[in-house]
Nucleic acid binder design. Sequence first.
DNA 1: ATACAAAATGACAGCGCTAACATTTGTCAA
DNA 2: TTGACAAATGTTAGCGCTGTCATTTTGTAT
Lengths: 335, 335
Amino acid sequence: MKANLSDVAKEAGVSAITVSRALRHPDKVSKKTLDKIMSVVDRLGYIPDPAARALAVGKTNVIGVVVPSVTNNVFSDVMRGIFETSEGTKWQIQLGNSRYSPLEEERLVRTFLSQKPAGLILSGLEQSDATSKLLMNADCRIVQIMECGPAPYDMMIGFSHIEASRVATRHLLDRGYKKPGYIAARLDPRSQRRLQGFEEVTTAAELYDRARIVTTPRPSTVTLGCELTADLLSKAPDTDAILCNNDDLALGALFECQRRGLNIPNEIGICGFNDLEMMAVANPGISSVHTHRLQIGQQAMSMMDAALTGSGPDPSVIDVGFDMIARQSTNRAAR
Amino acid sequence: MKANLSDVAKEAGVSAITVSRALRHPDKVSKKTLDKIMSVVDRLGYIPDPAARALAVGKTNVIGVVVPSVTNNVFSDVMRGIFETSEGTKWQIQLGNSRYSPLEEERLVRTFLSQKPAGLILSGLEQSDATSKLLMNADCRIVQIMECGPAPYDMMIGFSHIEASRVATRHLLDRGYKKPGYIAARLDPRSQRRLQGFEEVTTAAELYDRARIVTTPRPSTVTLGCELTADLLSKAPDTDAILCNNDDLALGALFECQRRGLNIPNEIGICGFNDLEMMAVANPGISSVHTHRLQIGQQAMSMMDAALTGSGPDPSVIDVGFDMIARQSTNRAAR
DNA sequence: ATACAAAATGACAGCGCTAACATTTGTCAA
DNA sequence: TTGACAAATGTTAGCGCTGTCATTTTGTAT
């Protein structure tokens, strides 16, 4: 039923290898035979078998992508960028969900590597030792995404989370908030660095108070944002600003404060992280650190493509930065 | 460097096929040789080459999943269910993003089929003619998700969107709203059926008004919810309830109405669709039709697994239903 | 017309694995 | 002890493709 190379070859009156060449290196085949072969390919609906090709070449067109979550808005934007940019290229995206587990990540990397992928896209700087070893010896290109840091395996694109949260914290202090708190869910390494930035800056300003930091290992949701805010306000009722580890929590904080009749931004300021689209239209608009998630996905994929096709330079490490977006929720009246 | 079957075989003092059997059909190999082989496999860190296996067997362990969006909350929940449930099985998920384009879907199905997948998971009832033909002749199991309808290719899991929106519309009428409007973005087939349900019920109640239906092909966002609401209220200012095609739009509607100082639910009622987690904690809580997205993903995957491993019955079509969740946003005071 | 290089095409082997069949080994009853 | 049968293991071939090298064809300069 399904045609293979030699079927096409027979039909076109050439040898199999010529058909292979026509498909892979059209410039190595005369115009005339190329045309004939292509017409036969069309007529027979021939589609090359990727497994056979992979076996012969020892490489696939697969690019493995490991993300810690498929539901998190941040990663879905990144994924969208990757998918978008991969379209029209020969690269085939294969997605793995590590669920924030280094062990699961290791398993995924192992599985991906066994498929002889052309490339691997991973999140973050730190991997388990075993994963690191696998990656160092891996015979494929690697892009680490989301963060920027020293010693990439290969290529890297992201931004400094600690610097971003320093900027957000300073923003709160600049606006005159004196008792800022911090709420965070599921502390992955990036969240930890963000918390660290907050601690640094508040400590330097002598405004650090351990009681105003509320965290939980549970996954982040808007509902959890409400709960953590309630927690924070019961432990430290005089808190006058909340820096949220992400925007889900920030929206929850907003809802919770509204319910309590707290005036935002005067009685309490709220600042999120990531700047999800909805932050701009909430009431009041929520200040947030805008992160270039889509761009990270897009550029990760185009770096990968450039590296694999050998086209263009190899920028290797890109810091896409971030933007502090100040909105109503931290726009405290001068006092 | 990397060990293959015959390396293992040599080391274990058996033939290659015995190693293959030890790995694939351990019961066909004596306990003694099995142990020996396994220890060599461990020692050499042998990992089978999936491409070679695929070529020999003419089938892979890949299950192709085509979703229309990777950012939409609905599909990220479904994806999560699929990934979760695939863990621990031998099935390898391969994700494709059709971006709501039937042509892109066709391309993806074609690509997936060329890889001889074990199964395919697709969204919705309708595919392009070409896609349909591919699927009917496909040598793999198929699960259609999100909707329930007649004539599945193979298996199916979802719910009736038209019935769900009928119920939501009746809910609004039951609560005494007399001038309900409808807002929708990107009208995929499921959204269209939801709109249809709204039209049916309002027409039957003699409350249908074309001017109260505002749609746009743009992708759905909270911001767009604000805009569509503004549109609706400018075209038909006396609208007293908004049924939103999804929860992003509903949240946008809430924000917009708040900004206009409209009392929710008394001056205007708002009802969403999907019941995202945040609906419950918004102010006021937003009524919504709860859909079992995670469950759809999970069950789609377990149906697939059962069908492929031949274990368990073959329920073929499952309607997971939906639940109308009434909250404050439609709780109009009796008048 | 001849020589020669370059372009186009082909023959062959092999990537790593497994299905199908073939052979050996083990077990048990007569 | 022998034969019959089952269990365990092995041999062979081939899945569909492409790299390498060999051969043929074409184009060009003399």
